[in-house]
């Protein structure tokens, strides 16, 4: 839990910064804390719905996001809150017209933490060293995807809506597939996520 406190703090500060009145900020003096974009994602093993904020960097090709996700018990059989950091690398952009841009390929890793007393980050004391080698609270995953960007105009508060999809898997599923290629299909371990990105002014 100690690891989580600074992450929560960072996340709260991003949200608070993004909540500031944009009009009071002089142009060009945007605080680095204010995220470049917000995202809302459905599925993708980081929550039923996840809300994220993040930054664009690396020549405008790299996004780094922090998501808070939740899964209600009525849908997922258990109520689970999770925090996820995700990176998205999108090397190519094709403008279709003034309004639409296609970003055909994205790839990236993510690390997701699930809250709950049934999940451990460090092996509890009652186990000999190395008894279980993975943390049940932390999942490392990766995805490929793509998106379509719809520009609303540079002067708008939200500069663009991006609609994205991702096909992702995570460490434990991937390992299971690698060791069982006769009985498991690649489709068994990849699942779909859909999301919207709001590029902020």
């Amino acid at each position: 839990m100690k690891i989580i406190a600074p992450i929560l703090l960072l996340f709260t500060s991003i949200l608070m910064a993004s909540g500031q009145d944009l009009d009071s900020e002089a142009p060009g003096k945007k605080s680095w804390l204010i995220p470049d974009h917000m995202k809302v994602q459905f599925a993708g093993n980081i929550g039923f719905l996840s809300v994220g904020a993040g930054y664009l960097h690396g020549n405008d090709k790299l996004e780094t996001d922090l998501y808070a996700g939740f899964l209600p018990k009525s849908i997922g059989g258990d109520h689970i809150i999770s925090l996820t950091t995700k990176m998205t690398y999108s090397p190519w952009k094709f403008a279709i017209n003034e309004e639409y841009t296609v970003i055909p390929f994205s790839i990236g890793p993510y690390l997701s933490y699930s809250f709950g007393s049934q999940f451990d980050t460090l092996l509890p004391n009652e186990y000999p060293k190395g008894y279980y080698w993975w943390a049940t609270s932390l999942r490392f995953g990766a995805f490929v995807g793509g998106r379509v960007q719809m520009d609303l105009g540079a002067q708008q508060r939200v500069k663009s809506f991006d609609f994205y999809y991702e096909l992702g898997t995570y460490d434990l599923e991937f390992l299971s597939y690698m060791q069982n290629q006769k009985s498991l299909q690649i489709s068994d371990i990849f699942s779909l996520a859909l999301g919207v990105k709001l590029r902020l002014h």
């Binding site: 459905f42 599925a43 993708g44 093993n45 980081i46 929550g47 039923f48 996700g69 899964l71 849908i75 997922g76 059989g77 258990d78 689970i80 999770s82 699930s114 709950g116 999940f119 999942r139 995570y170 434990l172 599923e173 699942s191 779909l192 996520a193």
Partner: peptide, 16 residues
Amino acid sequence: ACTACFEYNPNQIILE
């Protein structure tokens, strides 16, 4: 086609 292709959390419990 996709009722099975969305996963929400590795620890979800969604059974037939």
